[in-house]
Amino acid sequence: MSAARYYVDGKVQGVWFRASTREQALALGLRGYARNLADGRVEVLAAGDDAALATLEAWLRRGPANARVDRLEREQAHEDEAGDGFVCG
């Protein structure tokens, strides 16, 4: 089990990015959250299987149909930050 924090920059607010991320994460069995940041980015914290995290990361590079991802940053995170389930904040 691993955890990662992602910062997604581009046209990622107001395009169902958080809800779509939640759907992807739940389908992959990941825990964590997706939330908008004041600077226009979306922060995603996910914890779970390494292969599932890699799949989510690949999806975050594209996002949902109406999004435009210009930049994706990844940082290590702690599993205990993820909580239970996957929520949008």
Rank of each mutant, 00 (worst) to 15 (best):
R22C: 08
A4G: 07
E57D: 13
P64G: 09
F86I: 02
W16D: 08
W16S: 07
L37W: 09
A82S: 06
A82H: 03
D49M: 02
L53R: 11
R71L: 08
F86C: 13
G89H: 10
G83Y: 05
L72F: 01
Y33K: 10
A46F: 04
L56K: 09
Q13M: 04
G14V: 00
L53Q: 14
A77F: 00
R31M: 05
E79K: 09
G89Q: 12
D9C: 10
C88T: 13
R74K: 12
R5K: 12
F86N: 11
T55Q: 15
R71E: 08
R41C: 11
G89W: 02
L72Q: 11
S20D: 09
A58D: 15
A77R: 01
L26A: 11
D70S: 14
E23T: 12
R74P: 01
G83W: 01
G85S: 12
V12E: 10
R61V: 01
Q24T: 07
E23L: 11
A82E: 03
E73I: 06
R18A: 04
H78T: 11
G48E: 03
Y7K: 10
A65K: 13
A46D: 04
Q76E: 15
G14R: 05
A4R: 15
D9H: 14
D84W: 05
L72E: 08
R71D: 10
T55H: 15
C88L: 08
V87I: 13
D39G: 10
L30I: 03
D9G: 07
T55D: 15
D39C: 11
V8L: 03
G29E: 06
A54I: 00
V15P: 02
G89M: 00
Q13G: 06
R71Q: 14
E43P: 06
A47L: 02
Y33D: 14
R68M: 12
Y7C: 06
S20N: 10
A19V: 06
D50C: 09
A58I: 00
E81N: 10
G14L: 00
P64V: 09
A4Y: 14
D84A: 15
A54D: 15
L37P: 05
W16M: 08
A34T: 02
